[in-house]
Design a protein around this nucleic acid. Structure first.
Length: 262
DNA sequence: ATGGTGGTTAGACCA
């Protein structure tokens, strides 16, 4: 089984690239973030035509997560237990969707950005990650052999090696100790990074800002991850980051991250 | 090359 996660930055503007990624990598499952549309706006036809099923959760022009699968798409779940809302009045955001695909419980996750350290959105990010940890920890406690994948745009660079210049990011979100601790807490709950062992750094990234020629200058961040329970980790035979997809006109600012299971 | 990113959208907001 081959599964990928990708922050697509609008499914409507990149549907042709999505089809290309599905075909090029012979994907069984593709987890998308930032689809940026409502369910009724999702361009499903080209994906249906390839024999895939789609589960999408999109409420408006922001966020939006989807699971695309050709190996089954069962027990679709929008959000995880106790997923936080944002703001006052409280707003539910489309940042998590789960489903079972060929016996693997997969989650497409779009972790809140945080905006600025100290911003209300930053507190939301940390709370969101803590609630995700609680939920994910519970799933593994229920069944230590559970096959669960938590994948998506985490908006966290877990180590200094995961950003092109640590000094540039000093005092900014994505690299602060509380964010890194929130990520490590999920690893400590039993969810290992499935990709890093196959793509060691430094200089290995999944995201490059559109501005300032960050991609050609190789100035990126590793912020997209696929984490898995021990039962999943034991099945991984390969993983890579599809840098080629970041090239050319009309690319997303994120690259797909691909994992192969036996 | 006096603009410089790109998405959603129609003046901003978000990343």
């Amino acid at each position: 089984m081959r599964i990928a996660t990708w922050n697509v930055n609008s499914i409507r503007s990149r549907i042709d690239r999505v089809v290309g990624v599905l075909e090029r990598h012979d994907l069984d499952v593709l987890l998308l973030q930032e689809t940026k549309c409502r369910d009724d706006q999702f361009p499903s036809m080209p994906i249906d035509a390839l024999g895939y099923q789609i589960a999408h959760h999109g409420l408006n022009q922001w966020n939006g997560v989807a699971i695309i699968s050709r190996v089954g798409l069962d027990e679709v779940q929008v959000g995880f237990p106790d997923i936080p809302t944002y703001g006052d009045p409280a707003v539910s955001e489309a940042r998590a969707i789960g489903a079972t695909c060929a016996g693997v419980r997969v989650w497409s996750l779009y972790v809140p950005n945080g905006r600025e350290v100290g911003h209300e959105h930053y507190a939301y990010k940390l709370d969101w990650l803590a609630k995700l940890r609680d939920a994910a920890s519970g799933w593994l406690a229920q069944d230590k052999d559970a096959q669960v994948i938590l994948a998506g745009d985490w908006n966290i660079a877990p180590t200094d090696e995961d950003v092109w210049d640590p000094a540039f990011f000093e005092g900014k979100t994505h690299v602060t100790p509380p964010e890194r601790a929130a990520f490590e807490a999920i690893v400590d709950a039993g969810y290992a990074d499935l990709v890093r062992p196959y793509t060691p750094g430094p200089g290995v990234y999944t995201y490059w800002d559109y501005t300032q020629l960050r991609f050609p200058k190789k100035q990126g961040m590793r912020i997209d991850f696929a984490l898995g329970t021990p039962a999943v980790q034991a099945r991984v035979t390969d993983a890579f980051i599809d840098r080629e997809e970041r090239k050319g006109k009309g690319a997303s600012d994120h690259a797909p991250v691909v994992v192969t299971l036996d």
